[in-house]
């Protein structure tokens, strides 16, 4: 009886925490679905429903275009970071070479150095390279993620050496071993890392704002437009934000199984 009581109490606490986490997201969608006049209403259910805020957001913003731009940036950054980190971590994990430690420390260092330190030099470099106001300009300086290198290297180190040796005996070169053995074995870790990198890149606000100040911006910059000097326009702001969140949810749904198993496993190890 006390066991059941304890279980019930535990579930109540968990439910409360879960609600607290989900509520802001719910409120965002609820607000975006109210009639434009009801935006400040506090009823829990948005009734009557209206797509007015979405229409307003779409009228002022090229939502599809912005989402596409953002997707290009986020996918570019995440995939780029993943590839770079994969190759770098593989080199660090599988080979001994001169200057290995130094190079590794330098890569981890990029993660420790605050963004504010590198932002101006990067900006100047982009200016000189003529990449300001381009998506490439947003992506390029972010391609190396120190934390991704660190994580992947330690995951690769945990692959038994005999497995890699077996691949060599079976005739794989190091490139073939990477793609046919290392990547499949690390798939859960790679999926979790991919989500992490993608979400970070998707939510990145400041750096795109700096590089893309004038032209075809990403969605986070578009959303900024509703935070005008004459007041915040909550309806379209919530609508655009809600739309901006959808791709992240979608990605999570697709990769959820992998992510959960990666986290569960890293907990067990």
């Amino acid at each position: 009886m006390t066991d059941r009581l304890r279980a019930v109490r535990g579930h109540l606490v968990l439910a409360a925490v879960g609600l607290a986490c989900v509520f802001p997201i719910y409120w965002m969608y609820a607000t975006s679905l109210r009639r434009p006049g009801d935006v400040f209403a506090t009823s829990l259910l948005p009734w009557p429903l209206s797509l007015g805020s979405y229409r307003e957001a779409a009228r002022e913003l090229d939502v599809v275009g912005l989402l596409a731009n953002t997707a290009v940036v986020a996918v570019g950054v995440a995939v780029g970071q993943l590839l770079v980190a994969l190759l770098a971590a593989y080199a660090f994990a599988a080979y001994r070479f001169r200057g290995e430690k130094l190079l590794y420390l330098a890569m981890i260092g990029t993660w420790l150095i605050p963004f504010q330190v590198t932002m101006l030099p990067n900006y100047v470099l982009l200016y000189q390279a003529g990449l300001l106001n381009t998506l490439a300009g947003v992506i390029l300086p972010q391609l190396l993620s120190g934390v991704a290198v660190l994580l992947l290297r330690s995951h690769m180190r945990s692959i038994p050496g005999e497995l890699l040796e077996a691949a060599r005996m079976d005739g794989r070169g190091s490139w073939g071993t990477l793609w046919t053995v290392v990547v499949p074995v690390l798939r859960p870790a790679l999926a979790a890392l991919a989500i992490l990198l993608f979400v970070t890149a998707w939510n990145e606000y400041f750096w795109p704002a700096m590089v893309l100040q004038r032209s075809g911006a990403v969605i986070q910059l578009g959303i900024r437009g509703f935070l005008g000097t004459e007041g915040v326009r909550w309806g379209p702001l919530m609508a655009a934000s809600g739309l901006a969140c959808l791709p992240v949810f979608a990605l999570y749904l697709v990769l959820q199984r992998q992510v959960v198993s990666a986290f569960v496993r890293s907990g067990l190890r």
Binding site: E162, L163, E165, A166, V185, R187
Partner: peptide, 21 residues
């Protein structure tokens, strides 16, 4: 000569089977 061209096969202590295959 690299391992693949020596025409030798190895059986490892840990078996080293590819876990994803």
């Amino acid at each position: 000569v690299p391992p693949r061209d020596r025409d030798l096969a190895m059986v490892f202590q840990s078996y080293a089977l590819y876990p994803h295959l």
